[in-house]
Design a binder for these strands. Structure first.
Lengths: 334, 334
DNA sequence: CTGAAAGCGCTAACAT
DNA sequence: ATGTTAGCGCTTTCAG
């Protein structure tokens, strides 16, 4: 097996103490330039690299952060992760990615896995099947730095980053109205998710502003977050039979799954669809779909910056900010 | 700050020694059932979790494996990662994912990052811009367990897993020929990649079997692996002007980018396209494209199993296997 | 069956 | 300017 060099070996080889080596390598001012040079040269020669695990044990920090998302195959999340990584890397942190696949059980086990002190903080986007937040609360109360992004929860007071979902949904709905659609339906992810609630509120507000009466029947949810195509198929069939003009789809995965269903639906062109999606091929799908693209990369960057701020803060932080970023509406004339 | 419970605390609280606690928690046979029960109960009560960093330092293993892929947003890779995770999780390993974004520099720094972070082994799919393999060789020679998947290299003797690219490409080309296409072009990723070479060979063999003379002019490569749309656009324009009947696209990312270009090309329907792709919406794109879907999840699982086998092997391994998995050809009649 | 003690590699307070 | 020592949390001989 591969045996890495240690400061002890360097110390013995040069007949100095380990502390001298340690200090020399961290460029301490209390070591003479000569010895520093000597030690650095030898360290380089035997290709010494400091053991991060030992250092972690010593100073109680692992210099790694955990990420919990529902699915990395989801374009929104893979883009967010790229944003997170760009900041983490720059600041010297490793990133450990875990996926809940929208399962509460998986979320639970991933969080406890991450929490067992191997990460300095966690970036969380909630699973769509989670309705009980005790596990996150406990983690937070025990002092684990946490930042929520995308699917945030109000129950915990910390930094949060997301798209301005209300605004994005409001504007999308207004656009649908402006284009002459009368009967507009809303198809969401699980109802307790922040993204579902905020996007529904934006939708309602837009209807309201145009004096369209909100109709409870025009709202359907996908409890399994778009994984279950049948769920979506049922909702779409229901909307069709209710002679809906347009649908706003409030989730990336649901948008894609809905497109799959619609591609096999004869009269799909009659429906105007606008969906939240960060898929890089959303504009190539048929039938055509207008879409709302979130600023995923920047959401990731912001979340990572916030988390590292908490981790590196010497004093406890009591003032937390919730940052909302604008999304882009891409209207496709059909 | 968050302070985790330690075995020391348990020991003091129950007036036993730390070693007793350690042994009790690892279910050693030399501890009485009574004390075990007592200790486990208290450990559970204060929510004790063993500190993996301390354990790593002690036994020289981190129980984590590193992954290096070009891009997690690529469906093939996100599916592969899911396969890797399923095995890793089951066997008690953490997974640290890094992306090269097909850059040689990034690959270099990620690998040294992973190595110094003391992962127990690394799963590698080479960047398309890498032509010098010294960095990987050195890592391997220093004893780091490595398994290559998808984009493998011959220069290093270890376990490897990939699609049977020759066969997949051979069959796809045969299908194109069978469907009456005469002039068949090949569009690949970077030419030194194993996936490019093997798929080109399969293409050549199929032409050969049908007595079609191989024409060097009918082969184009994308040096930037599909990131640069212009590169692809040029290749496609070139093929068009050469009145090609069909194109086989030998890379996931290139397939998607090519579709983007073709969606804006007037006579795109005249071309028959067949591309390697694991995108979950490939069948919804327009124009229609036939596709070769790799068994990504299983590739990931196999690679992870191989790596863990190396890591956990007590004796050095000298016999290495290269496993090739079949892909599925999805022919779409247009 | 249980305890004492060493040590994994590193840092830092406390000597000298 | 350099050395000594203790200790981070855990496992594992070695001693009872």
């Amino acid at each position: 097996m591969y045996q890495a060099a240690t400061i002890k070996q360097i110390a013995q080889a040069l007949s100095v103490s380990v502390s001298t080596v340690s200090r020399a390598l961290s460029d301490s001012h209390e070591i003479s330039e000569e010895t520093k040079k000597l030690i650095r040269a030898y360290a380089k020669k035997i290709n010494y690299r400091s053991n991060p695990i030992a250092r972690s044990l010593k100073n109680g920090r692992s210099n790694s952060i955990g990420i919990l998302v529902s699915d990395i195959a989801n374009s929104f999340f893979s883009q967010t992760i790229n944003g997170i990584e760009s900041i983490a890397y720059e600041k010297g942190y490793h990133v450990i990615i875990t996926q809940s696949h929208d399962s509460y059980e998986k979320e639970l086990s991933n969080l406890s896995h991450l929490a067992s002190r191997s990460v300095d903080g966690i970036l969380i986007s909630m699973s769509s099947q989670t309705t009980n937040y005790e596990h996150v609360k406990e983690l937070h109360e025990r002092g684990m730095p946490i930042v929520f992004f995308d699917r945030i929860i109000n129950e915990i007071d910390t930094f949060k980053v997301a798209t301005d979902n209300f605004k994005a949904s409001f504007e999308a709905t207004k656009m649908l109205i402006k284009k002459g659609n009368k009967k507009i339906a809303f198809l969401g992810n699980a109802p307790q998710l922040s993204i579902s609630i905020e996007r529904l509120n934006g939708y309602k507000a837009a209807l309201d502003e145009s004096n369209i009466v909100f109709d409870e029947q025009m709202v359907q949810y996908c409890l399994e977050g778009g994984r279950n195509v049948e769920e979506i198929s049922n909702a779409l069939t229901y909307f069709s039979s209710a002679t809906v003009d347009a649908i706003i789809i409030a989730s990336d995965q649901v948008s894609i799954s809905a497109m799959r269903v619609l591609s096999k639906t004869p009269d799909a062109e009659k429906l105007t669809i606008i969906g939240f999606s960060n898929s890089d091929v959303i504009d190539l799908l048929s039938p055509r779909i207008s879409y709302i693209r979130q600023n995923a990369f920047e959401i990731g960057q912001t979340a990572a910056q916030m988390l590292i701020k908490i981790i590196e803060s010497t004093y406890p932080i009591y003032e937390f900010e919730t940052k909302l970023l604008d999304a882009e509406l891409h209207w496709i004339e059909s």
